[in-house]
């Protein structure tokens, strides 16, 4: 009898489908609902995104969460996020990179590996995941990103970065994605802005990495290029330069695309923004952060017709990071909107 006594399962009834009201469709935020367990918090996050006037989100769908055992997929949490986003009228761009399942990265000797390590002989398994994801979410998720920041060592399993190796992965993933849904838009790269030179054990300059991707034949295997660009301590109109990291660095990547005949392809800024930590050396004041963020969106609207949308990192974390990373967010883990949220909402919502 006691075994049959259980508390009622938490239920969450979605309201009627919503529409994002915005004067600035370029607006996009990178949500981090990956580790948000409670459905009401997922919904509340997406409600706040919609109410702020952002029609698009980038969300991370870790491979290990979906395929903890080879060939066995669990889409429960991913379905929840995608369905709730649809209910709120939001378009989802899905990042499919990192968090490699244990079974795909544990070497025979059982040595520890980081979860961004994708062994070269497991590229086909990643392709299988991409196929399964695109097939499962056909019609619901129309844009995917292949991996994340492959030009930094941390994101390449702490191995030397490998543009040619990433391009091989891209080719496999692109083919499998199109096999599942020819209409899905495949974004390459999500390159990290960095000035690391050839031979650095931290990564490789994003401009050099992209050149080598093209040299390895990447052009036919992506529909648009995902890029990251943070403003750091500079205003959004700070001119780009090969030896500078700022918001407009993406224009240099654009130039490379055009030089390789890809002017017809678009770009998506999948991570960007400013930070207002009181101590991070690359932060600005909270007031400047608000000004620069709004000006950044306006710069993109005015000068970047090939960039759509501009996604700011990061809307909210499920729990505090206890580092300067917390100062990228718009809303606290307790759902307290920060002044930047109010400012962007006032700007975006007519």
């Amino acid at each position: 009898m006691l075994a049959g006594i259980q508390p009622p399962r938490a239920t969450l009834r979605l309201g009627p489908p919503q529409t994002v009201v915005t004067a600035h469709p370029v607006l996009c935020v990178h949500t981090r609902l990956t580790d948000e367990v409670e459905p009401w918090k997922v919904l509340r996050t997406l409600e706040l995104v919609r109410q702020m006037g952002a029609p698009t989100i980038v969300e991370y769908f870790p491979w290990a969460y979906a395929e903890s055992r080879p060939g066995q997929f669990d889409w429960g949490h991913a379905d929840l996020v995608v369905d709730y986003a649809a209910n709120q009228g939001l378009t989802v761009i899905a990042r499919l990179g990192g968090l490699v399942p244990d079974w795909a990265r544990t070497p025979p000797d059982g040595a520890d590996t980081v979860d961004t390590l994708l062994p070269y002989d497991r590229f086909a398994d990643y392709g299988d995941y991409v196929f399964a994801f695109v097939q499962h979410f056909q019609g619901r998720v129309k844009t995917i990103i292949i991996w994340n920041e492959p030009n930094v060592t941390l994101e390449w399993g702490f191995r030397p970065v490998d543009p040619e190796g990433y391009t091989t992965l891209l080719k496999i993933a692109y083919a499998r994605a199109k096999e599942a849904d020819p209409s899905v838009q495949v974004l390459a790269g999500a390159l990290a802005p960095t000035l690391e030179p050839e031979g650095s054990d931290l990564g490789l300059n994003d401009l050099l990495f992209l050149e080598r991707m093209y040299a390895a034949g990447a052009a036919g295997y992506f529909d648009a290029l995902a890029v990251h660009a943070y403003g750091l301590g500079f205003p959004p109109d700070e001119p780009p330069a090969p030896d500078a990291l700022n918001f407009r660095r993406v224009e240099l990547l654009r130039a490379i695309m055009v030089a390789h005949g890809d002017a017809a392809k678009g770009m998506v800024l999948t991570e960007s923004g400013w930070n207002d930590s009181p101590r991070w050396t690359r932060a600005v004041t909270p007031g400047a952060r608000i000004d620069y963020t709004l000006a950044g969106y306006e710069w993109a609207e005015t000068h970047w017709p090939w960039m759509q949308p501009v996604c700011t990192w990061a809307f909210r974390y499920p729990k505090p990071q206890n580092s300067y990373g917390d100062y990228f967010t718009f809303v606290s883990p307790e759902f307290v909107p920060k002044p930047i949220y109010d400012a962007v909402k006032q700007w975006a919502v007519p």
């Binding site: 207002d276 009181p278 004041t285 608000i290 307290v336 920060k338 002044p339």
Partner: peptide
């Protein structure tokens, strides 16, 4: 508080819940 910082968000939260709290950003 420092405008837009964590203390600002905390103080605003108090202001919503407690009578007579004035936030000076």
């Amino acid at each position: 508080v420092e405008y837009g910082a964590g203390g600002d968000a905390l103080a605003r939260q108090w202001a919503r819940r407690v009578v007579g709290v004035t936030v000076q950003p």
